Computed example of a mutant assay.
Amino acid sequence: MTDLTALTERICDRIPLTRQLGFTLAEHRPGQLRMTAPLAPHINDKGTFFAGSQSALLTLAGWSLTTLEAEAVNSDLGNNVVAVESSLRYLAPLAADAVITARASDDALTLFRERYARKGKAVLMLTVTLCDPHGKLASEFDAVYLARRVDPAH
């Protein structure tokens, strides 16, 4: 499995926008990824976390978890992950650093791994939350990501 530092470097190298997000991939275990981001680079005119930044971070957390899970099945790094569907709800303003947690249910993760191993293509349904450091929920993101095995030489 890819370590989080290497994945962070890959993300920042391949997706230039992410260099400005100040995110940290903090912890991964099967079906769950925790990420953090400071308020300062994301502050809006109201002194709270900009909605566009929340959207970018939530999307990135889901993409990162799906990438890690695809690599757990297909460790040669020949994996292509894309978001295919999402729904985002802003629930409360956030005037603090963010803790973003992406989660797939045990059933969703099992189905994803089985299909990916067998077919080289699978979807992962997950929920991503963005909270303050004390766990107060600011936004919630439900998404479906598609992972496809690709030839790493191409």
Rank of each mutant, 00 (worst) to 15 (best):
T2W: 09
D3P: 08
T5W: 10
T5P: 04
A6C: 07
L7Q: 15
T8H: 07
I11V: 15
I11P: 05
C12P: 03
D13R: 15
R14T: 13
I15Y: 01
P16K: 03
P16G: 04
L17C: 04
Q20H: 12
F23A: 01
L25D: 04
E27N: 13
P30E: 13
P30F: 10
L33G: 03
L33I: 10
T36Y: 03
A37G: 01
A37W: 00
A40H: 11
I43F: 04
K46F: 13
K46C: 09
K46G: 07
G47E: 09
G47Q: 10
G47M: 12
T48E: 02
F50H: 09
F50A: 03
A51Q: 10
S55N: 08
A56P: 02
L57G: 00
T59V: 11
T59L: 03
A61I: 05
G62K: 06
G62N: 02
S64N: 05
T66C: 02
L68F: 09
E69N: 05
A70L: 08
A70M: 09
A70D: 00
A72W: 01
A72E: 07
S75L: 13
S75A: 15
D76I: 02
D76V: 00
G78K: 08
N80E: 14
N80R: 13
V82I: 11
V84P: 07
S86H: 14
L88C: 10
R89M: 14
L91G: 12
P93R: 10
P93H: 04
L94A: 01
A95D: 13
A95T: 09
A96V: 01
A96Q: 03
D97T: 01
A98V: 00
A98H: 00
I100P: 02
S105P: 12
D107C: 08
L109T: 06
L109S: 14
F112W: 04
F112E: 01
R113Y: 07
R113D: 11
R115N: 07
R115D: 03
Y116C: 02
A117P: 06
R118Y: 05
K121L: 15
A122C: 11
A122L: 12
V123W: 09
M125T: 15
L126K: 04
T127Y: 15
L130N: 07
C131P: 05
C131Q: 12
C131G: 04
H134F: 11
H134I: 08
L137R: 12
S139Y: 06
F141A: 06
D142A: 13
A143K: 06
V144I: 08
L146Y: 14
R149V: 14
R149I: 06
D151M: 13
D151N: 14
P152S: 13
P152Q: 09
A153Y: 07
